[in-house]
Write a protein that binds this DNA or RNA. Sequence first.
DNA 1: AGTGTAGCTTACTTCAAGGTATGTACTTAC
DNA 2: GTAAGTACATACCTTGAAGTAAGCTACACT
Lengths: 136, 136
Amino acid sequence: MSGSNGVAKEVVASKKVSRRKGDLYSAQCPSRGVLDHVTSRWGVLVLILLLDGTHRFSELRHKVEGMSEKMLAQTLQALEADGFVLRKAYAVIPPKVEYSLTAMGREVTERVKMLATWIEQNLPRVAQARAKLGRE
Amino acid sequence: MSGSNGVAKEVVASKKVSRRKGDLYSAQCPSRGVLDHVTSRWGVLVLILLLDGTHRFSELRHKVEGMSEKMLAQTLQALEADGFVLRKAYAVIPPKVEYSLTAMGREVTERVKMLATWIEQNLPRVAQARAKLGRE
DNA sequence: AGTGTAGCTTACTTCAAGGTATGTACTTAC
DNA sequence: GTAAGTACATACCTTGAAGTAAGCTACACT
């Protein structure tokens, strides 16, 4: 994060602008919003599903257990707005809409998936740690 | 109020819980809880800070601007319970407590950081996508 | 005529995350 | 004696994220 470039340089001149080192630690950093979308409860699941390929709205809704239509629509819109998801609507009745990942979307999702996969695979270790700490 | 929730019904049916590829898509999967802790608003920041090395409570609080003491304590406890963070308290006055990552914590955090770094570095692309979609 | 369908939108409600404010235990410094 | 520092706990309250439910479109089927 703060590694890419130096500490605050020219920022000093401005008024209320953040004098932060890494902007991740400043509350009004836009990275935070994107991170929130990508790591949101439903966002993670939708993204990883789309890594397999194009899916229709109803397919996604059916696959992700417990997600309401409202949340699916909302999640997809946020991810589309960020340029991670591509929406392709066909002018037919009943409606048909296909969702897929953009190139950018695939890049983030790969990283998201790495994280998710690690957690799934290491869940036993976490459970063990939990049990151990619970005893003490 | 009338309908407690629709999810519960589906869950009851199967004893052999998840025969899915990843149980991430089933609502009651413990992976989600861990994922939520790790990718939570404050969790991400605390973890990445701890990747640099041991920090005291007050140091963390000071570095992550906008985080209340309550949230810091809560976040640290969740991460400690999951076995990602090690808490070391010294019996001195005034109190001194040091927090660091466990081996497991370092593994997850590296993945979290990869994701966070990607987002920070590709923020311009996201902004561009946002502007483009906004026009249409 | 009525029903179903896919992909939403909108209105209403609920619940928990998170903010604020305070207390505590103990010591050192003023 | 009182203020300040440290690492919390606890109670209270606000905000917003997410659930529920209904409506909408426009055609095709019965």
